[in-house]
């Protein structure tokens, strides 16, 4: 696991010591700094992006930073083999992040200070249910989750593979595991 401070990336992107993620230009600059940091990580690693010292986050900046950071990571041919979890977001950040994720059909994992994680963005009810089961059970094959989710094993397998392709869980041999869990 690697901790990346969004505040430090912001400081590296601006001439003045501001703590707010506002404007598209700033969003693009912060994304560039963070993409550079992510590119140095080992394959399969999980990066925790820490928003805890960030003040205001506006939608334009979030679209330029969050959505455009996640798009190449979660498509069918990801730009790198890695995972990103958001950490230290407040309620208002969460609302803004969710709105830009929905606009692009994206989703990501947010971890809260108490350790609880939440799936945020564009996911179906079945995907969310399966993701929560994976979070609760840890490492688990699809057929075992299917019964609890009330769907067929084939359907569960397909849905879980979709979640893994979107980098919301980790594929581990014949099973699936939460991000950050031991593979």
């Amino acid at each position: 696991m690697t901790h990346i401070s969004v505040h430090s990336a912001l400081q590296a992107s601006l001439d003045a010591p501001y703590s707010d993620l506002v404007t598209r230009r700033t969003g693009a600059a912060v994304r560039t700094v963070i993409e550079h940091q992510l590119s140095g990580l080992a394959d399969g690693s999980v990066a925790f992006l820490d928003f805890s010292r960030i003040g205001v986050l506006d939608r334009s900046c979030a679209d330029e930073f969050v959505a455009k950071l996640m798009l190449p990571l979660s498509n069918d041919h990801p730009s790198r083999d890695g995972y990103v979890v958001f950490h230290g977001v407040n309620e208002l950040h969460l609302e803004i992040i969710e709105s830009v994720l929905l606009a692009h059909g994206l989703a990501l994992v947010v971890q809260f200070p108490d350790g609880a994680a939440r799936l945020v963005g564009a996911v179906t009810d079945v995907e969310r249910r399966l993701w929560e089961l994976v979070m609760r059970q840890g490492w688990c094959p699809a057929e075992r989750l299917a019964a609890e989710a009330g769907i067929t094993p084939d359907e569960a397998q397909g849905q879980l593979e979709g979640l893994a392709r979107r980098r919301l869980i980790r594929r581990d041999a014949d099973a699936f595991a939460p991000l950050g869990a031991a593979a």
Binding site: V22, R24, G55, L57, D58, S60, L92
Partner: peptide, 20 residues
């Protein structure tokens, strides 16, 4: 206090529109 952050966000979006 949460609403004051929304207030600042409203201001930043309105100003960003000028720049964009």
């Amino acid at each position: 206090p949460r609403a004051t952050m929304g207030f600042a966000m409203t201001l930043s979006e309105a100003c960003s529109n000028i720049i964009e």
